[in-house]
Design a protein around this nucleic acid. Structure first.
Lengths: 173, 173
DNA sequence: GTTACCGAGTCCAGAATCTGGACCTACTGT
DNA sequence: ACAGTAGGTCCAGATTCTGGACTCGGTAAC
């Protein structure tokens, strides 16, 4: 069990300042690894099989054996992932039977909020990973009655947030 | 170099049919691993550091050494990731100097289309991984002038596509 | 009541990956 | 001549993943 929110190796930003010159393997030039929410998120859900476990729960498969089958992950690995996801507050392990003890996994709000991540991954795969005229292996229907084509927009103006339409803001500090 | 689009282990769907009974380690009950674009996508960009490499290119760091520093990945691993990303058509390796030969990495259209994935991961991290009143480590400004809060909507109706607002469509076949 | 099966894991050894250095090859700058 | 930059490669040791086999508790079928 590694510390989930350990974020080891992600160090402070304010460096680049002092020009001290101790020798290191490679004398770091100007930057430390970025502190960034993408990296932090991937530390929690970026391990192999983690997002597929979450996908399964979204699809209603909440039980260990069924997940093993539908994901195709080694059971040992899946067990480890589920432990991390529960520890991170993404899944909740709920007992649905004693004698024998049986459990199922449910999404917490944090878990439910990973839906957009799942959707954007799916959309990209549908766009770039299908051969010739192959149909997407899974199609979702939105509440509005249309087939769901997930799109990322700016919540403020509603326009699509595609590459090139946004820039990092330089901040003081 | 593993075959990127190998998708090994992801087998056909039409099973569940025949009830043959050869003995296997665990006599498969009713399902094979799902064929799914999420899984396929993760096979390409789901390895450790891959999405961070893509993040770097989005942020304008296109060169190997700079990426190593800003990502914090072992150079060996990063080199391997970049090779895969180039082979998958997500990045393009472009020479910007001969004598000495120097290269930089650019996003292809497929790469640019991973922006939504990056944004949703970032948003989730900003929401769930900051301690107390900590400020997000990176803030983006959208073309519209507002701070970008990425939101996933249904392209058809414009309403947010959050958990519970969509269901898989059962398809013939 | 014995055999079969399910569910939810654990245990294990071998295979595959990751990791942090060190090292290499070409230059350029001083 | 020497340091530094750039873009890697090489390597051995540490970590992870992997596919089976196996467990434990219980139910269902013969």
């Amino acid at each position: 069990m590694r510390p989930v929110f350990g974020l080891s190796g992600i160090v402070g930003v304010m460096d680049a300042v002092a020009g001290q010159s101790e020798r290191e393997a490679r004398p770091r030039a100007s930057a430390q690894p970025r502190v960034c929410s993408i990296a932090k998120t991937l530390e929690v859900v970026g391990e192999k099989w983690a997002l597929l476990a979450i996908r399964e729960v979204f699809l209603g498969d909440r039980r260990f054996d069924e997940m093993v089958r539908r994901i195709g992950a080694p059971r040992d690995t899946l067990a480890a992932r589920l432990r991390v996801l529960v520890a991170s507050g993404i899944l909740e392990r709920r007992q649905y039977s004693e004698h024998p003890a049986r459990f199922e996994y449910h999404l917490t709000q944090a878990g439910r909020d990973l839906y957009p991540v799942i959707l954007t991954l799916m959309r990209w795969g549908d766009t770039y990973l299908l051969t010739d005229g192959e149909e997407p292996p899974m199609v979702l229907e939105h509440n509005c009655g249309h087939r769901l084509t997930p799109q990322v927009v700016c919540a403020a103006c509603g326009e699509p947030a595609v590459a090139g339409t946004a820039r990092p803001i330089r901040r003081a500090g």
